[in-house]
């Protein structure tokens, strides 16, 4: 189990992390969600040992044994194009980065080719990375991180640049990793993917974990019984201020977190603009926007 314990990190006057604690178990996918600058990448780098925290520690706990993890024990996908050498081919990259983590070409090559096959990139095995599209580069970097066969995989924005088909493929791959007892820490702004694959989610904002829990439990805890409302015209935040149980899901869409008896007296105040009411719970994106948005002083989304 990977355990992050009360980690503090400061950059000058900026408190990037304020006592963050997390656990990641084998066979589990943890979604780390937060707005830009919330501290997600800082936390990932501290786990990898690329940043040293002021306080707190990161531990790998295996039964009675606990130790500070080394960077090579993780499979990593960094955000952006910072994962591979642009002037080398996919294969050369894989053999090099596998090699510096102590893996022989004989073990690395078949694993890498198998993942590349799954991503439909085998015909580009010998192509220089610079000749590939952004999405292909991302798939290559993902294939490399997976081919290292780590027990823990840290993915920073893995869906960046991926087309919808590849995103779906990645979701299936991630779900498959759970069966292999890999632990995956996933940060992404693609909340649909996070909702699809993660067992637990942690919301981070301004260096603090706001909420953490099982994805389904959080959704139902927030939602319980809920209703979706489609309105005839955009309503803005005025309606949300009517009652804290309203969440704005779009310009003309609301979610009400509560039962029918709670909603019924509020309907007249919507001044007859309700076109449609259906039972439903909010998406992870709605929860994220409302939870983190409030924390950021931006209480509701407008999309």
């Amino acid at each position: 189990m990977l355990r992050v314990q009360r980690v503090y990190k400061r950059f000058g006057r900026l408190e990037a992390l304020k006592g963050v604690s997390l656990t990641l178990r084998p066979g589990e996918i943890l979604g780390l969600l937060g707005p830009n600058g919330a501290g997600k990448t800082t936390l990932l780098k501290i786990i990898l040992g690329l940043l040293l925290p002021e306080k707190g520690e990161v531990l790998l706990v295996e039964g009675e044994r606990r130790h500070q993890p080394q960077g090579h024990e993780f499979g990593v996908l960094m955000e952006g194009s910072r994962n591979l050498y642009m002037n080398l081919s996919l294969l050369e990259n894989a053999l090099y980065f596998g090699g510096i983590r102590g893996l022989s070409p004989h073990s690395m090559r078949p694993r890498f080719e198998a993942w590349l096959e799954r991503f439909g990139l085998m015909n580009r095995l010998h192509s220089p990375l610079a000749s590939l599209s952004r999405g292909m580069q991302q798939k290559g970097a993902l294939a490399l991180a997976l081919a290292l066969e780590p027990r823990f995989l840290l993915l920073d924005e893995p869906t960046l640049g991926l087309d919808p088909m590849s995103r779906r493929e990645l979701e299936e791959i991630l779900l498959g990793l759970k069966r292999k007892e890999w632990g995956v820490l996933l940060t992404s702004h693609d909340l649909r993917t996070v909702e699809q694959v993660s067992d637990r989610v942690a919301f981070i904002s301004k260096g603090e974990i706001l909420r953490e829990g099982k994805t389904r439990a959080l959704l139902s805890e927030w939602a319980g019984e809920g209703y979706r409302l489609r309105l005839g015209e955009p309503v803005g935040e005025r309606v949300v201020r009517l009652d804290p149980r309203f969440l704005l899901e779009g310009p003309d869409r609301l979610v009400f977190l509560g039962d029918w008896e709670g909603l019924k007296p509020l309907l007249p105040q919507l001044e007859g603009r309700v076109l449609e009411i259906s039972r439903g719970v909010p998406s992870l994106e709605t929860l994220f926007m409302n939870l983190v948005g409030k924390e950021q002083g931006n209480p509701a989304p407008n999309t």
């Binding site: 780098k45 990898l48 040992g49 690329l50 080394q70 960077g71 090579h72 993780f74 990593v76 960094m78 952006g80 194009s81 910072r82 994962n83 591979l84 050498y85 642009m86 980065f97 510096i100 983590r101 102590g102």
Partner: peptide, 18 residues
Amino acid sequence: GRGTIEHLALARGGLLRQ
């Protein structure tokens, strides 16, 4: 410059050894 120094630092034994 290439942005790969952090991956080099994830080598077995760390950046200094690599």
